[in-house]
């Protein structure tokens, strides 16, 4: 007859504390960004489909793109999708360059319809959607930035402390082993979160916005330094494309981390603000 009774210490170890993790501005601007970035990516891929090739410099060297997606005729006479990257040819039939339309017919399209807005080919509509969400994204981002600087959100929650930075190598190992901070340590963003959010907010997003500006002939007239910054309009277009995919990569890792470190808790905290941590009852 030896049933183990939960000890007082165990009960204390299981204390659940509800904390307030994300302020209302962060929550709203986060979800507006999610919508905008999704729309911008999909309409952007439609725009890319109008000329699915990238170059470096000011002009297009049509015969020697740095990167392209297209349809080519294979030696056996069949058409195939092909990605060209620095002279390397990769067969992408079925994924990129040549896919199937809804009716099963082969479709000569760089990025397939399920990835684009709209699904049918329309550069005009793709552009309208891209610029609408670009405005919303930039205004939303500026609002977030002003709030974050005035409220000290940036310094309080994002800029890592010396202690955070010292913990960087250990944090990398912990993440690789899928062990995430618990208890009191989970109250604040860990160092990898801080650094990745800072890179996205202060490097990737400003870069992709400025590269977008540099593609505008009118803005180039007003601000020629945009072209200097990227090394030409076609370089800016290439950078815009690369950074878009870096943001996709960030989003994939971000969502994976959300799922692995407690999907409901994380999701709730970004909707209601409340985030539950388990402490050892050692709170003051």
């Amino acid at each position: 007859m030896s049933m183990v009774q939960p000890s007082a210490a165990d009960t204390a170890a299981e204390t659940r504390v509800t904390t307030y993790r994300h302020g209302v501005v962060v929550r709203i601007t986060h979800w507006v960004s999610v919508i905008c970035m999704t729309m911008l990516l999909m309409s952007g891929l439609m725009i890319f489909n109008a000329h699915p090739a990238l170059y470096w410099g000011n002009i297009s060297d049509f015969d020697h793109p740095a990167f392209s997606i297209g349809t080519v005729r294979a030696p056996d006479g069949h058409f195939q999708g092909q990605m060209l990257l620095f002279g390397h040819r990769i067969n992408t039939t079925g994924v990129l360059g040549l896919t199937k339309a809804a009716d099963g017919q082969p479709l000569d399209r760089a990025f397939p319809p399920w990835m684009t807005i709209p699904r049918y080919y329309s550069l005009a509509d793709g552009r309208h959607w891209h610029f609408f969400f670009a405005w919303l994204f930039v205004l939303n981002g500026l609002f977030y930035l002003v709030y974050s600087l005035l409220s000290r959100h940036v310094w309080r929650d994002l800029v890592p402390s010396r202690g955070d930075l010292r913990h960087l190598p250990a944090s990398v190992v912990e993440h690789a082993r899928l062990r995430f901070p618990r208890g009191e340590a989970a109250r604040r963003y860990n160092v990898l979160q801080r650094l990745s959010y800072l890179v996205v907010i202060f490097v990737l997003i400003p870069t992709i916005v400025l590269a977008g500006f540099a593609m505008s002939p009118r803005l180039d007239a007003g601000f020629p330094w945009l072209l200097t910054l990227f090394g030409g309009r076609q370089s800016a277009r290439t950078v815009h494309f690369i950074v878009a995919w870096l943001l996709v990569a960030f989003a994939l890792v971000h969502v994976a981390m959300v799922i692995l470190s407690g999907p409901w808790n994380n999701l709730r905290s970004m909707i209601t603000g409340r985030y539950v941590i388990k402490t050892n009852g050692e709170r003051e």
Binding site: N58, P217, R233, Q234
Partner: peptide, 10 residues
């Protein structure tokens, strides 16, 4: 520089 709506420049 001539910028086409499709994305290329000459």
């Amino acid at each position: 520089r001539h910028d086409c709506v499709e994305g290329w420049s000459c």
